[in-house]
Design a protein around this nucleic acid. Structure first.
Lengths: 102, 102
DNA sequence: ATCCTGTGTAAGATATTGCTTACATACTTC
DNA sequence: GAAGTATGTAAGCAATATCTTACACAGGAT
C-alpha cells in the first residue's frame, strides 16, 4: 500500500493513470503525452505504477499495452475511508460513555 | 495535494495520523509510540504532516498539541473518487455512442 | 536566577528518486 | 536475414528523504 500511495503522489504518474483509465494504451502513446520528458523517463514511471499494482501490462506484438487496475488503489482508498469512519465511530462511542456518566 | 499523498505514503506518518485522529496529543506522547525511532525523527515526521496540512498544531504552555485536520486529505480523496467515477461516466458515454451507431 | 522538561532545528551520513543519454532486446516487415 | 520500430534497462548524476546525534530555546517549577 505504501507503494501505491507513493506512486500516486507523483503528478506525472497520476496523469498517466488518467490516460490509461478507460482503455489500453501502448507505452509510446503514453510517452507522447509528455513531450517535456524523455521516453525512458515515462517508461520508468510505468514501471513504478506496474510494481505498485496500479496498472497491468499486456504485450501485443511489438507493443506493450497498459491499462488501469482499479484494485490497485483499494487499500489506499480504504485508508482514507478509515480515517473518517473510524473517527466518527470513536467520537460516537466517546459521546455515549459521556452520557452514561452522571 | 502531492504533499499530502507523499506524506501519507509513509507508514510511520499514517500511524501518527491515526494517533491524533480523535484528539490532541503532545509531540512527546506521539514520539513515545515509536520506541524504535528517535524523538527528533518523529518531530520531523510531524513537520512533514504539518506542512502537508494534515495536522494542525496548538502550543499549550510547554507543549505542542497535534490534531488531525480532515480537510488535509480532501484533494487526495477527490482524486481517488475521480479515478472511479470519471471512468464510469466515460464508459457510459462510450456505450451510448455505441448504441447510436447503426 | 537556575534548573528541568518538552520540543524544534542543525549538521551530516546514507538511501532513494527522478531524470538523462547510451545501449540492449524483441517483434515485424521487406 | 537485415533493417526498422517499439520498448525496456544500465549507468550515472543531482536533488530529496529519512534517519542519527548534538545543540538551541522556551516555559514552568524551585
Amino acid at each position: 500500500m505504501d507503494q501505491a500511495l507513493r506512486a500516486v503522489a507523483d503528478p506525472t504518474r497520476r496523469a498517466i493513470l488518467r490516460l490509461v483509465r478507460d482503455g489500453d494504451l501502448p507505452a509510446g502513446a503514453i510517452a507522447a503525452h509528455f513531450p517535456s520528458m524523455s521516453r525512458p523517463a515515462v517508461s520508468q514511471h510505468l514501471r513504478v505504477l506496474s510494481d505498485a499494482g496500479l496498472v497491468e501490462v499486456r504485450p501485443v506484438g511489438n507493443r506493450r499495452l497498459y491499462r488501469w487496475r482499479p484494485e490497485g488503489l483499494r487499500d489506499a482508498a480504504a485508508f482514507l475511508e478509515e480515517m473518517w469512519s473510524d473517527r466518527l465511530a470513536r467520537l460516537k462511542a466517546a459521546a455515549e460513555r459521556e452520557e452514561e456518566r452522571p
